[in-house]
Design a protein around this nucleic acid. Sequence first.
DNA 1: GTACTATGATCATAATACTGAATATTAGGG
DNA 2: CCCTAATATTCAGTATTATGATCATAGTAC
Lengths: 160, 160
Amino acid sequence: MEPSERADEAVFDAVQEMPGHLLRRLQQIAVSMFLAECRDHDLTPLQFAALAALRDNAPVDQATLGGLIALDRTTIGVVVAKLEERGLATRTVLHRDRRSKMIRLTPRGMQVLDAILPDVEHVQARLLEPLDPDEQRHFMDALRKVVGAHNAVSRAPLRS
Amino acid sequence: MEPSERADEAVFDAVQEMPGHLLRRLQQIAVSMFLAECRDHDLTPLQFAALAALRDNAPVDQATLGGLIALDRTTIGVVVAKLEERGLATRTVLHRDRRSKMIRLTPRGMQVLDAILPDVEHVQARLLEPLDPDEQRHFMDALRKVVGAHNAVSRAPLRS
DNA sequence: GTACTATGATCATAATACTGAATATTAGGG
DNA sequence: CCCTAATATTCAGTATTATGATCATAGTAC
């Protein structure tokens, strides 16, 4: 049977079941839930991740910071520019290497991070709530395994 | 212990383990693998999904098509415009309701869809390859369960 | 010291994803 | 028939995510 002669709905049904498609939808949902829950703090998921990475690793240059949360050079540049604009981080050029800009959290950045953390943890828990504890563990294990195995394939691999 | 007094690395380590963060990275990886594998066909994941949905449901108006693959009105508009520009789909205004534009696949759109399908199926299989068959089943079950439970939360819920 | 290479950041461009506002059209109530 | 509500699309604006190109700077080879 040729692909074009399949029964009605067969192709579309297959797409609905594809991991890539479900993954996109869940990512869509996760971002939506994050933004709703953290509305008061006015931080996007990426801005939050960057703040958290900065808290434990500052000072770092942009490229390294991007590697810590798996963002390519351009994207991390946009995120950090936004953080700087809002007074949550600073960028300072190094004397010894004037190509690099070292990123640091401001006191205000620390405050915002501390304030948003409980809400972030809450929304993460809510995301997996439809699964029972056992399923949650297996799901997270699988997620870690697949991400770890394919890390190098990503355009912006995690670098630790 | 106050949040700001946690041990070094604790916040950042927690972020790395959050489902939202891992989900974003896996989505990143899935798109990257899709584009690499399907490079010859020059289709993005969304363009492919729209073609597949059209194949089994055309003619449909834009809003309905968006509902079929969980895209909001604006995004589906951009995707369909791109498909039309490339001669893979047509938009025609209905006589009876001139607000709606009915979308249809062109013969060329059918061809491209048939040509890309084996590659898409291959890349989906490769994505889950790090998991053994049992783990793959459980992962997909969990994915379906979580997406299904949160569908209404999404800004662009699936409408069947 | 000059040339080559590597690195860090930025710019232009594009696709994905959403909100809120505007526009056009249809349908229903009076 | 007119006003209003609902619907379909588009537009403007923002954020996420990437590529390729460019620019400045640094390090190395000769």
